[in-house]
Design a protein around this nucleic acid. Structure first.
Length: 372
DNA sequence: AATAAAGCCAACCGCAATCGA
DNA sequence: CTCGATTGCGGTTGGCTTTAT
């Protein structure tokens, strides 16, 4: 019963993706948009299963992904959201714009869990095991009466709300962005705050470079997927030797300089290649669509670009965020409205939480009570 | 310098939910 | 309604890098 894993099929490649594969995939999606993953391997000639293609896209190549180290604000957010939501990484990721669930999950497993257990051992943190693994397990104890359960639930909600407030109040600049996104979701007519430039990282994601690459060659060959691919392929061939040289030693695996927590990434077009690696081979035009600042990432591009993503039939995806949960997105195909909403629609609880955080309104327990 | 251990993270696997014929 | 296909999600792993001995 059931299909065999795609990896069991013949001719399906596994393991790390190569730049060639990345470009094939990205250029195909550039042309056709994400979705219909089943057709991707067939149409691109990639020896990967559709699932692998989708994963590669959503976790790595998709523009707008923020990579590199997590700042304090994000870290706090993750800790408190994890306490609130449990290991629902996709849900947590929806509150951390441009972070992938995989990234958050990895960060939690490799850093935060240890960090929390350490601080717990020192009696420093407020988070106990219940907080970490989910909203207090006591609150759902089967023996509790309805009244007790409601009180416990309210307590939990207060705790979660306080935790979220605490997390969100750490960094005013960040909260500006965050709150504006939330607010724009709740009240679309509100003008969002200007994008906040993060100076913490000079990291340029692979998606950044790929997007720039594609913008570059799209100009050259605007209509033909196959000819475009050939153009890319020839360029790949041109630089293939360099790919095999030191410039690309870090394509796979960890970084060669500094610790991974310093916001670097093994991918081509990462921090290292930003100064003479793959990216420069293509002589990208860094001024396309956004500021020419050397510190510009796709984050900024995503913030700056709000107009139509369709350009002469080409699929543009500057700030398209496919993986962020969106209850309006009934299928995985491109939803234009989605482009303008970084934040997913909020549940009533979430609205309540963020209303309280961003507007500093009086407690709205009545609203909460009406929810049940 | 060599080796082992630990850290890290991209990618895989399997299950569940959803879609559509 | 059923069933196969597709997609989303969370847990886990393999392999590379870094650090310690």
């Amino acid at each position: 019963m059931g299909r065999p894993p795609c990896s069991e099929k013949k001719e399906v490649k596994k393991g790390p993706w190569t730049p060639e594969e990345d470009i094939l995939l990205v250029s195909y999606i550039q042309e056709h948009g994400p979705g219909n993953w089943r057709a991707v391997p067939t149409n691109t000639g990639l020896l990967r299963c559709s699932k692998s293609c989708r994963l590669r896209w959503t976790n790595y190549l998709r523009p707008g992904i923020k990579r590199g180290s997590f700042n304090d604000q994000e870290e706090k957010m993750i800790i408190h959201l994890q306490a609130l939501l449990g290991n629902r990484w996709a849900a947590i990721a929806s509150y951390l714009p441009r972070r992938t669930d995989n990234d958050i999950k990895n960060y939690w497993n490799t850093h935060l869990k240890k960090k929390l257990s350490r601080s717990e051992g020192q009696g420093v943190g407020d988070d106990n095991e219940n907080d970490i693994n989910g909203v207090s397990s006591d609150s759902s104890s089967s023996g509790a009466s309805k009244g007790q359960w409601e009180r416990a639930l309210q307590t939990d909600i207060h705790m979660a709300k306080a935790a979220l407030c605490e997390a969100l109040s750490l960094d005013n600049s960040t909260i500006t962005t965050f709150a504006s996104q939330s607010a724009s979701t709740l009240a679309p007519n509100l003008k969002p705050a200007p994008p906040v430039r993060t100076s913490s990282s000079t990291y340029a994601s692979s998606a950044d470079n790929i997007a720039r690459l594609l913008q570059n060659w799209t100009k050259k060959t605007p209509n033909s997927w196959s000819s475009s691919t050939q153009t890319i392929s020839s360029e790949i061939a041109t630089c293939h030797d360099q790919y095999n040289s030191n410039s690309f030693n870090n394509y796979h695996g960890s970084t060669s300089t500094g610790s991974p927590s310093e916001g670097q990434t093994p991918e081509w077009g990462g921090a290292n290649t930003n100064h003479g690696g793959f990216g420069s081979l293509y002589n990208f035009n860094s001024s396309i669509n956004y500021s020419s600042s050397t510190d510009v990432s796709m984050d900024d591009a995503a913030n700056f670009t709000t107009e139509s993503k369709h350009d002469k039939g080409q699929f543009m995806f500057q700030d398209y965020d496919e993986t962020k949960p969106n209850v309006n997105n009934n299928n995985s195909h491109y939803n234009h409205q989605q482009v303008h909403e970084q934040m997913p629609p909020l549940t009533l609880l979430e609205k309540w939480l963020f209303d309280d955080v961003t507007i500093a309104a009086a407690p709205q327990d009545d609203l909460m009570m009406n929810m049940f």
